[in-house]
């Protein structure tokens, strides 16, 4: 098993696409900080726009977005670095690039049938899935660590300062977000193992990350009328991608625990399901 993990890590490191996807995600983080700095200047010079932002600022955005601003940042005080990082991780930009990476990494192996060369080296084909989960985990950690670095650089470049505060809570937030990202990456890997199509996997992965499953809310509410009584009901509350957008630095510990349970549960479930599929399926 260790050898298979080493092999996948070698491929990950040697592959230009890995670094291109990583670089692109960092550039997007950088661009997001730039847009935030532009928006801050805009809100500071437009009190009406700021009032609108304050009125709608608490709404959860389930989609993928760039350059977010929180109303409390427009009071003239310095924006805390960890809040800036948190907003950009919540925006699901990194999740989108993770979808691209997982689809590419699993898809390139699926397309050329490389597993045929090494199928005899393992006693259970589920090892190939576990190995991918290690690669996904490492890439997720790399992306989130890189995002912190890119945000620091962006903060210096576009805001002119780094306001380091709330590090402890920030670290907890990042750890839970890493778990959620890994879980979503495993879900994308599961999608690929089911569909065996890179295009279908990437499309579904990005659409689900962008909150397409909100459509299920409307269906569920129309079928089960009792759900109307729950004001904040959304299926997104129970999905890994939903929790990426939901979790904030100031979320309750209950929300952190729920998000962690969902993430770990999804990792285990997706790993198991993918392993079962790949073990049963003949190699093409």
């Amino acid at each position: 098993m260790i050898n298979v993990i080493k092999m996948d890590l070698y491929r990950m490191v040697k592959n230009k696409a890995t670094w291109l996807i990583f670089l692109a995600s960092m550039l997007m983080m950088f661009a997001s900080i730039f847009m935030t700095s532009q928006d801050l200047a805009y809100y500071n010079s437009n009190p009406t726009a700021l009032q609108d932002l304050q009125a709608n600022g608490d709404e959860v955005n389930w989609g993928i977005y760039i350059g977010s601003v929180k109303p409390e940042w427009c009071t003239g005080t310095e924006v805390p670095l960890m809040e800036l990082v948190a907003v950009n991780v919540k925006s699901k930009l990194l999740l989108m690039f993770l979808v691209v990476f997982v689809t590419y990494f699993a898809g390139s192996e699926g397309r050329n049938g490389f597993l045929k060369n090494i199928a005899g080296q393992v006693t259970h084909k589920g090892i190939f899935v576990f190995s991918k989960s290690v690669v996904i985990s490492i890439f997720a950690v790399m992306m989130i660590a890189g995002a912190v670095l890119a945000t620091m650089l962006g903060s210096v470049a576009f805001l002119g300062y780094i306001n380091i505060a709330n590090i402890g809570q920030g670290c907890v937030f990042l750890i839970v977000q890493i778990l959620l990202h890994i879980a979503y990456g495993m879900f994308v890997l599961f999608l690929f193992n089911v569909t065996e199509s890179s295009v279908a996997t990437m499309l579904a992965g990005i659409l689900i990350a962008a909150g397409i499953l909100q459509i299920v809310d409307a269906i569920l509410v129309s079928v089960f009328s009792k759900l109307q009584a729950i004001s904040d009901f959304s299926i997104m509350n129970y999905l890994t991608s939903g929790n990426v957008g939901l979790l904030s630095l100031d979320s309750t510990s209950g929300l952190y625990i729920r998000a962690s349970i969902i993430a770990v549960g999804a990792i285990v479930l997706m790993n198991t399901l993918s392993s079962v599929i790949i073990q049963r399926r003949d190699l093409k």
Partner: peptide
């Protein structure tokens, strides 16, 4: 067992 079944299974970008 070493095998070459159908086309060679290779990473063409490597």
């Amino acid at each position: 067992i070493g095998l070459l079944i159908e086309a060679p299974s290779l990473y063409t970008g490597m």
